[in-house]
Computed example of a mutant assay.
Amino acid sequence: MKKLIHISTRDGTAPAGLFTPDSGKPAKSAILFFMDAMGPRPSMDEMAQRLADSGYLVLLPDLFYRFGEYGPFSGASFADETSRNQLLKMIGETSVEMTTSDTEAFMNVLQRNGMEGPYGVVGYCMSGRRALTVAARFPAKFAAAASFHGAALASDTPDSPHHLAAEIKARVYVGTASDDGSFPSEQSTRFADAFRRAGADFALESYVGMQHGWTVPDRDGVYDEAGAERHWRRLLQLFEETLG
């Protein structure tokens, strides 16, 4: 069941969906669900609810809230030049540090709903690196962190999450598309090397034949049902083993 809430942050007010199991049973733990680059929309709600129905309290915040009203966008919005330009601006001007700062307010919501942690976090597309960064910045609060078709996880920028490998205490799972220019093979190697050197608990898995965005139902021409179901098995196993 989804409840629309508004979260006060240092920079304003972020709309968010708070999802509970449709069964009515109490959630066993809480998960922070970070959206992909097209923002909160029905397909993101569908994924968040599926996660909630596995027994979790799930918070899906709008990371683009600083821009006020926008869109609406869909999984096909990058194919439209006007929408693509707007999205690229929003992505570029919503820094990872902004999301990290917002996470304190997000965790306060979980705590007010009876969840003290540790939590899980999962990010898609632009938010894969955010999920890993949050796990590093709040190591005592996150027991599991996952990224699917995450972009620039081991880039040349100073804020690339592979630099934070030694700070992450959570178990990490990274699912990558075999055809994804946002996380090419050289970055995959760099990422794995950094996490091995840090002695981190991580798994990096390539989904052969998949394209960037394969997990999201409204990504027409990219979504792959078999690949998406495999992603769900990995994600739910990660959270079951770390959060119960």
Rank of each mutant, 00 (worst) to 15 (best):
residue 21 P to L: 07
residue 6 H to A: 13
residue 205 E to I: 12
residue 217 P to A: 09
residue 173 Y to S: 15
residue 128 G to W: 09
residue 116 E to H: 14
residue 108 N to P: 08
residue 197 R to L: 12
residue 150 G to I: 01
residue 16 A to E: 01
residue 123 G to S: 13
residue 198 A to W: 12
residue 166 A to Q: 13
residue 152 A to I: 01
residue 200 A to L: 12
residue 150 G to C: 02
residue 185 S to W: 05
residue 194 A to H: 10
residue 106 F to Q: 02
residue 114 G to S: 07
residue 157 T to Q: 15
residue 186 E to W: 04
residue 170 A to Q: 07
residue 224 D to C: 02
residue 78 F to Q: 08
residue 108 N to T: 13
residue 1 M to I: 03
residue 46 E to T: 11
residue 239 F to A: 06
residue 95 S to W: 01
residue 93 E to G: 00
residue 75 G to I: 05
residue 4 L to V: 08
residue 76 A to M: 09
residue 117 G to Q: 13
residue 29 S to Y: 01
residue 147 S to K: 00
residue 227 G to M: 02
residue 115 M to H: 15
residue 169 K to C: 05
residue 225 E to P: 00
residue 194 A to E: 05
residue 178 S to I: 02
residue 61 P to V: 04
residue 106 F to T: 01
residue 97 E to W: 03
residue 202 F to G: 05
residue 173 Y to P: 00
residue 50 R to L: 01
residue 229 E to T: 06
residue 24 G to K: 04
residue 87 L to V: 04
residue 74 S to I: 02
residue 60 L to E: 07
residue 52 A to G: 04
residue 26 P to C: 01
residue 228 A to S: 07
residue 115 M to E: 14
residue 136 A to T: 05
residue 104 E to C: 04
residue 235 L to Q: 09
residue 243 L to D: 08
residue 86 Q to T: 15
residue 76 A to K: 13
residue 53 D to L: 05
residue 171 R to D: 12
residue 107 M to P: 12
residue 27 A to R: 08
residue 66 R to Q: 14
residue 71 G to F: 15
residue 29 S to K: 06
residue 103 T to S: 14
residue 226 A to G: 02
residue 37 A to H: 12
residue 230 R to S: 12
residue 237 Q to D: 12
residue 65 Y to M: 07
residue 10 R to K: 10
residue 180 D to C: 10
residue 118 P to H: 14
residue 39 G to D: 11
residue 151 A to S: 14
residue 244 G to L: 06
residue 144 A to V: 09
residue 142 F to V: 04
residue 226 A to H: 04
residue 21 P to D: 05
residue 101 S to G: 05
residue 166 A to N: 08
residue 165 A to Y: 02
residue 24 G to M: 04
residue 113 N to P: 06
residue 193 D to I: 13
residue 207 Y to K: 08
residue 241 E to F: 02
residue 91 I to F: 08
residue 92 G to D: 04
residue 126 M to V: 13
residue 70 Y to I: 12
residue 136 A to Q: 07
residue 198 A to L: 07
residue 42 P to M: 08
residue 72 P to I: 13
residue 177 A to M: 13
residue 105 A to W: 06
residue 77 S to K: 12
residue 194 A to P: 10
residue 133 T to V: 03
residue 22 D to H: 05
residue 75 G to H: 11
residue 211 Q to T: 07
residue 198 A to C: 06
residue 192 A to I: 05
residue 20 T to Q: 09
residue 99 T to H: 00
residue 9 T to A: 07
residue 115 M to G: 09
residue 32 L to Q: 10
